[in-house]
Every structure is written in structure tokens, then in C-alpha cells.
């Protein structure tokens, strides 16, 4: 796989075709769990892991797929991966799995994973599928982390509360107080805050895209000095 391909796949997952902000897939866990930065990051990492494992398996077996069994086989692979990760979290990250509750098993229903298996991994070699899974998973986790951090700061007035659940006892005092008063804006922690926060993120991304497109058009009109145009 060429380096330029990898770069394109990364750009696709993190920005151009971000699962959370552009494809708007997997919104159920995205909206439900993003009430603190740690919860968001944890679910994002679990989703990333599921994407990587299922992407690798689907890609490795890509020559064997027939239309009749493709979807059931993908769902079987994804569900097994999620169950394995759920059991591992219960065993080794017990407090965190209590906090995330039903949303770890529900990763099965995250459309992003089936969509990447179907649209990418089943047609591409293993190395490209690995990069794609990492890029899409990182894109999803980043949205969860940013949304969770925003809602936590506005709603609770803290950042990284409960970090010890993910990083061990040493992280117990990582919590950063962000607001001078005790009670934050309640709306941000409640479900409507998730929708509003996601809407603001989508709008912000759209504004950045429009701006870069405009400046891209301007610089495209005149030859750029860095790359001399070929005659």
C-alpha cells in the first residue's frame, strides 16, 4: 500500500468522511455516553478495537465472501468481537464497564462497524483495512472525546473526572476543576445537551470546510509558489 493511500485513508476517517460528524453513524452510543470525557474516550477506544479486529478478519477472508452469507457472517464476526471485548472489560476494567453499562454490548449495533466491513474491508487488502479501521475508529473516538469533554466542562464544571476508572488508581486526582462554581449548566449533561453539542460540532466542521474550500479556490487560481507548475 502506497503512503499516499494511507494518508488519504487517515484523512478520510478523521475529517473528510468522519463517522460521527459526516456519516452521522453510531449516534446512539455517541449521544448517550458522551457525558464525560473519560466515558467518551473509553467507549471510543472500545469501538476502535472492535473496528480493527472485525476489519482484519473480514479483510483476511475477503476472497471467500459470497453475497448470500456476507451480512450474517459480518454480524457474527462483529458480535463475537464485541462480546470478547465486553467480557475483557468486565474482568480488567470493572468500574468502567459498570459506568458504560449496556453501551459496550450495544457497539454491535453501531452502523459504522458494519459499514466499514461492507464498504471497505471486504474489498481491500489487510494492510489497507487495518489503516482504515484505525482511521475511522480514531475519528469516532475523537468526536466522542471532544463532545464528552465539552459536555463535562459545561455541565459539571470538571474535566477528566473518573480518569482512574480507565487509567488506574494513579489517575484519581487528574480531575481538573474548570468552573469557579459548583453547579454547571444542567442542560449540557442531559440528553438534549448531547444533540446540541453534536450539532455545534457538525456546524463547526462545516464552517472550517467551507473556509478551506474558499481559500483553496483563491490559491488555485494563481500558481502556488511552492510547487512550480510544469510546462
Amino acid at each position: 500500500m502506497a503512503a499516499s493511500d494511507a494518508k488519504r485513508i487517515w484523512r478520510n476517517g478523521l475529517w473528510d468522511n468522519n463517522p460521527g460528524l459526516v456519516q452521522l453513524l453510531g449516534l446512539c452510543p455517541l449521544l448517550a455516553v458522551s457525558n464525560t470525557a473519560v466515558n467518551g474516550l473509553a467507549l471510543g477506544l472500545a469501538t476502535l478495537l472492535v473496528l480493527v479486529v472485525s476489519g482484519l478478519l473480514v479483510s483476511a477472508l475477503r476472497h471467500a465472501w459470497r453475497p448470500e452469507i456476507r451480512i450474517p457472517a459480518f454480524v457474527l464476526i462483529i458480535a463475537s468481537t464485541v462480546t470478547a471485548i465486553d467480557l475483557s472489560m468486565q474482568a480488567w476494567l470493572h468500574d468502567l464497564s459498570r459506568t458504560l453499562g449496556i453501551f459496550v454490548p450495544l457497539i454491535v449495533t453501531n452502523c459504522t462497524i458494519l459499514a466499514r466491513a461492507e464498504a471497505f474491508a471486504s474489498k481491500q487488502p489487510v494492510s489497507a483495512s487495518l489503516v482504515d479501521a484505525l482511521a475511522q475508529g480514531a475519528g469516532f473516538a475523537a468526536v466522542l472525546l471532544v463532545l464528552g469533554a465539552g459536555r463535562e466542562i459545561v455541565g459539571q464544571g470538571t474535566l477528566l473526572a473518573g480518569a482512574d476508572m480507565l487509567f488506574g488508581p494513579a489517575a484519581a486526582d487528574w480531575t481538573i476543576p474548570m468552573l469557579p462554581f459548583d453547579q454547571g449548566l444542567l442542560l449540557a449533561v442531559l440528553p438534549p445537551g448531547a444533540f446540541i453539542g453534536l450539532g455545534l460540532l457538525v456546524a463547526l466542521r462545516q464552517k472550517l470546510v467551507n473556509r478551506s474550500r474558499e481559500s483553496g479556490l483563491e490559491s488555485g487560481a494563481s500558481p502556488s509558489p511552492a510547487e512550480p507548475s510544469t510546462p
Binding site: L61, A64, R66, E68, I69, P72, A73, L76, I77, A79, S80, T83, A84
Partner: peptide
């Protein structure tokens, strides 16, 4: 295809 699906199911069962 059916055999493949069965194999994947078996693999999943053993792994889990």
C-alpha cells in the same frame, strides 16, 4: 458458502 458460515460460527463459539 454455507460451510464457510458454519466454520465462522464454530470459530466464534470456540473463541468466545
Amino acid at each position: 458458502p454455507l460451510a464457510l458460515l458454519g466454520l465462522i460460527g464454530l470459530g466464534a463459539a470456540v473463541t468466545l
